[in-house]
Design a protein around this nucleic acid. Structure first.
Length: 912
RNA sequence: GCCGGGAUGGCGGAAUGGUAGACGCGGCGGACUCAAAAUCCGCUGAGCGCAAGCUCGUGUGGGUUCGAGUCCCACUCCCGGUACCA
């Protein structure tokens, strides 16, 4: 008996590969390292090890990178293909709160489970290089990078980060001033706060999303559109808080410009550009009637300033209180006042009304513009016109200067506001003749604009900016949507921020020698939750024992920073640690870093598109800082990015819309029931929220790993989402069964391989398959690679014995896709070395050509006949053959061709 | 609204401007079997036709071309991102 016993074959080879260390790869300088080989660094986005384990949808990308890695090993590359765990995060902490089990214990258990599941997929990871972000030996270096950020500043002139000690040197030498003040003239305390304000990691008071019920601030992406926490649906409040910030905005231009250096999906590059939101324009300074300090606005359309007929401040704008007069001035229209007797009360009432609005309320308001007059006028610097100053919530404090000049003629929002408040509208760009809309935002010559009249928009912009700068009324500028990165969390299960606070507010880095700064034991992991929105966000680490919280240095008591880092921190640099994960002397040794990250960084990075902005932007930012400081050798971390799709599956909802376990649903004649109740079929991403997960273990038992791998690759291109259908798996399983029977006699176990080489059509097919599969491997087109192997395998069914050349090639072409069966056949054919490092087959160009082929004959563009012709046929021969074809004659009526187009030997097109 | 991406048989999907639907699932018919499963063979876009064959056919409508799923213009719908960003 020698049936295809996939369970035995797969478990035996997985064990063997593990024992032999087949997938271990040495670093430069290590024994066994071969520096004549090219390198490939092939990386997966590492997972958060959840308690639920993997379902069949998770490893789609991992299968893809595994195939690509195996292919490149066979092509003779040194392949770095590691896997690790992004193991800090809220679920572990919540589990600890619920069960009393320490997050570290829970995390370790989940990691072990993940590792076991991934090994069962036969992935060729070098597990010796695995990292977990929660390991002290790992987060020691996360903390170290934080200290690099803390100890650096951004030199705008050189457009790069530099050690802050160099700033101090330049200040002391008088080559620079501190905001215009000579260093020597600055009091010592001010020197310190000036330096602190320059660091890439700094403390600032900023408006944050504070969720008292969860007891932490949240990132914007953790807050839903209606202003509640994504986790738990608790209210979230905007309030100013002193928090750690990272100066990612300093890198805004490089983060945009250097996207040109990478081979990424265009959609992701656009998403990053939009997220950074660079817009070029100008600041324009408007004098305020009766006041000393002017108001500065940002606009992308300085060319339209002659049409600025009013001005709007955000309700929270700090200037508002200064400029409100005691009474409404002359010229106040009734519609501007909310019907309230004086400006102060009107502004107060408007603020009350809008501050209670959540972001969603502002949206479903259908963009109805509301606002109120402040009672004060500004002066248009170009034409001296008095223009009323309003506050309105359509102007946001968080963007630009929180103040705008309103040009209703060119801006739809301003137009709408102007109409409801009876404000004048002046067009400053001539719309085309057929334009019948309101605000015109397109191109055209300037009108009603004094010295700008007749200029097109671009020219008018540069002319007015020059005028503003010469006359001291403003300057060209650039603003960004990107904000600095709010980096502190009040949670327990994260990296402690390694900073000490002195009694007088001095900040000091924990000495490198004291890293890692580990988390203290606490009795209660619960965050300091409260239902009082005014409660101070107290970090969970405030519950740490005093001997952790306080450090005595030279008789002075320093307090530890009690905030922890957000979950993004550890994933910002893990790809560097894989290079030498156990090195406790440096983050990454330079020689190995230059080898593995050489040229373009990671050669292939595969993961879900949901990380298009956050993780990928944060990681690029950290990498650039490390690059500036000389710790890495490439400006970009990930040379080539690929987004895999998702596995989708049917899901089922009961009458209340609640999801029910999909594998308990039964179908009878197109209707679906769950425990007797009718349910509705829907469709979505596989996962626990839709209760439609398929456990890979079930598939392994019934069909084996190779089948599952092939199936997931076969059902569609790697970058598109595709539906899971357990029914369809049999197709690929049959393929492997058939392949086995082609090679092995199931009765005797004898190999059915001959000594003869293939000839004729089979030989041509063999070499064409090598060619096609090779190209598919390069392009990650694994679905068509599988299909090619199906075809070749089907051709073998009619052969009594597999010809020797075919027998040598087929397992090797299959090895990246279905490594276990390929290794087994290779072994049975008597090969001493593992197929993992067997050379990838090369096709023979001379053997893919055939002598005859099918020529299509078209008459007036329609296919009328197909005839077998020699590939070397000439045009006159082809035409002669075509004109005697009965099928062709039926359509030409024997007429002479008026025109002949030949793409020989495949197509002959005749026009009559 | 704006920015991306997409739409091909019953289903998943293939197709450097050159034979649309490779490959697989499902379906139909047959072989083997007492029977079933497994396996093997054949057919399987739609319509018309006894047949040879003909007509139609890649979301819709136009266009370029000897020839368009593929290129161009206009539109519909679906998916993703983003949203009062001045």
């Amino acid at each position: 008996m020698a049936k295809y016993d996939f369970r035995e074959i797969e478990s035996r080879w997985q064990r063997t590969w593990d024992e032999r260390g087949t997938y271990r790869v040495p670093n430069p300088g290590d024994p066994g390292f071969d520096d004549t080989k090219p390198k490939k660094y092939i990386l997966d986005m590492f997972p958060y090890p959840s308690g639920k384990g993997l379902h069949v949808g998770h490893p789609l990308g991992y299968i893809g990178t595994d195939i690509y890695s195996r292919y490149h090993r066979m092509r003779g590359a040194n392949v770095l293909h590691p896997m690790g765990f992004d193991s800090f995060g809220l679920p572990a902490e919540q589990y600890a709160v619920d069960t009393g089990v320490h997050p570290a214990v829970f995390t370790e258990r989940n990691i072990e489970n993940y590792r076991r599941q991934m090994k069962a997929f036969g992935f060729s990871y070098d597990w010796d290089r695995s990292v977990a972000t929660t390991d002290p030996g790992y987060f020691r270096w996360t903390q170290w990078i934080f200290l690099q950020l803390f100890s650096s500043w951004f030199d705008d002139e050189l457009n790069k980060a530099r050690p802050i000690s160099e700033l101090v040197n330049e200040l002391e030498a008088g080559h620079r001033s501190a905001d215009g003040i000579m260093w020597q003239n600055l009091p010592v305390a001010d020197r310190r706060s000036y330096l602190d304000s320059q660091r890439l990691a700094y403390i600032d008071e900023v408006p944050v999303n504070w969720c008292p019920a969860l007891g932490t601030v949240l990132a914007n992406e953790e807050v839903t559109a209606d202003g509640r926490s994504e986790r738990g649906d608790h209210p979230v409040y905007r309030r100013p808080l002193r928090q750690w910030m990272l100066r990612i905005t300093a890198y805004a231009d490089r983060l945009i410009d250097e996207l040109d250096l990478v081979d990424w999906p265009e959609s992701v590059r656009i998403m990053q550009r939009n997220w950074i939101g660079r817009s070029e324009g100008a600041h324009i300074v408007f004098e305020v009637e009766g006041h000393v300090s002017p108001i500065r606005v940002f606009t992308t359309r300085p060319d339209t300033v002659f049409g600025a007929t009013y001005m709007v401040l955000a309700p929270e704008h700090p200037m508002v209180d200064e400029i409100i007069p005691p009474a409404w001035p002359d010229g106040t229209k009734p519609s501007w006042t909310l019907g309230i007797a004086n400006p102060s009360d009107a502004v107060g009432a408007y603020r009350m009304a809008t501050s209670r609005k959540s972001d969603r309320d502002r949206q479903v308001d259908e963009r109805q513009k509301s606002g109120v007059f402040t009672g004060t006028f500004a002066l248009n610097p170009l034409n001296g016109e008095r223009i009323p100053i309003f506050i309105a919530d359509y102007v946001l404090m968080g963007y630009g200067t929180g103040a705008i000049m309103a040009v209703p003629g060119q801006d739809p929002r301003d137009w709408e506001f102007a109409e409801s408040f009876e404000l004048p509208i002046i067009r400053t760009v001539q719309p085309p003749q057929d334009f019948d809309g309101d605000a015109y935002t397109g191109e055209g010559p300037a009108i009603n604009s004094g010295f700008l009249d007749g200029l097109d928009v671009a020219e008018a912009k540069s002319r007015i900016i020059r005028w503003l700068e010469i006359n001291g009324h403003g300057e060209g500028t650039i603003t960004y949507k990107l904000r600095d990165w709010l980096f502190s969390r009040q949670r327990y299960w994260g990296e402690p921020i390694p900073i000490l606070h002195g009694p007088d507010g001095e900040l000091r880095a924990v000495p490198e020698a004291d890293l890692p700064l580990e988390l203290p034991e606490v009795e209660d992991y619960r965050p300091h939750a409260s239902d009082d929105e005014n409660a101070d966000p107290t970090p969970t680490l405030a519950k740490a024992p005093d001997d952790w919280k306080y450090v005595e240095i030279d008789g002075i008591r320093w307090e530890r920073e009690l905030n922890t880092m957000p979950q993004w921190a550890g994933s910002c640099w893990y790809y560097l640690r894989y290079i030498d994960p156990h090195n406790d002397a440096v983050l990454v040794p330079p020689e190995a870093e230059r080898y593995w990250m050489g040229e373009h960084g990671v050669d292939l990075y595969v993961g879900g598109v949901e990380h298009a902005v956050l993780h990928l932007l944060y990681a690029r930012f950290w990498h650039k800082v490390l690059f500036d400081l000389g710790h890495v050798s490439t400006p970009e971390p990930f040379g080539r990015l690929f987004n895999q799709g998702y596995i989708l599956a049917d899901a089922f909802q009961d009458e209340r819309g609640v999801y029910v376990e999909a594998d308990e649903v039964v179908e009878v004649d197109g209707t679906y029931t769950h425990k007797g109740e009718d349910v509705t079929r829907v469709y979505g991403k596989m996962g626990k929220s839709l209760k439609n997960s398929v456990n890979p273990d079930d598939i392994f038992i019934e069909y084996g790993v190779d089948t599952l791998r092939l199936y997931e690759m076969f059902i569609g291109p790697l970058d598109t989402s595709r539906p899971w259908s357990t029914r369809d798996i049999v197709g690929v399983h049959r393929f492997l069964q058939r392949l086995w029977r082609n090679f092995v006699d199931e009765e005797t176990g004898d190999l059915l391989v001959s000594d003869e080489l293939s000839t004729g059509d089979l030989q041509v097919l063999l070499h064409r398959t090598i060619d096609a599969v090779t190209r598919d491997m390069e392009n990650l087109h694994f679905n068509t690679a599988v299909a090619r192997l199906f075809e070749l395998n089907n051709a073998l069914v009619s052969e009594p014995l597999v010809p020797a050349d075919v027998a040598s090639v087929v397992p090797r072409l299959l090895a990246p896709l279905a490594p276990h069966i390929a290794e087994e056949l290779w072994f049975r054919m008597g090969k001493a070395e593992s197929i993992v490092t067997a050379p990838w087959p090369v096709f023979d160009e001379n053997l893919i050509s055939v002598e005859t082929t099918t020529m299509v004959i078209q008459v007036n563009g329609k296919v009328r006949d197909r005839i077998e012709v020699p590939v070397a046929i000439t045009e006159s021969e082809a035409v002669a053959l075509a004109l005697v074809s009965a099928k062709v004659l039926a359509h030409t009526g024997g007429a002479e061709p008026r025109k002949v187009v030949a793409r020989l030997p495949n197509v002959l097109s005749i026009v009559v």
